[in-house]
């Protein structure tokens, strides 16, 4: 942040450990279901493919929404 053109203030926000853990688990969860969807496609299992894909997309969107919500709350 600029203040009187004389110096910068850099704010580094330290997130709690559990947030990083949740992010890591979310990514692992997404990779798992993406792999399941691709594998099901290769196995010619349409229902397994659709279910895996839905779980993947719902998890992705929910995660992103929560992330954006967190950013919004932080800005306030």
């Amino acid at each position: 942040m600029k203040d009187n053109n004389s110096y910068w203030i850099l704010k580094i926000r330290k997130r709690p450990f559990y947030i990083w853990l949740l992010r890591f688990l979310w990514i692992v969860w997404l990779v798992f279901w993406a792999e399941a969807a691709l594998g099901s496609k290769a196995e010619l299992e349409p229902r397994a493919l659709v279910i895996s894909l839905i779980i993947f997309l719902v998890s992705l969107l929910t995660g992103l929404a929560l992330w954006l919500l967190g950013i919004k709350r932080f800005k306030k």
Binding site: F32, E35, A36, G39, S40, A42
Partner: peptide, 8 residues
């Protein structure tokens, strides 16, 4: 009985 194309 599976084709084992996915780790699940």
């Amino acid at each position: 009985t599976k084709k084992d194309k996915t780790v699940i």
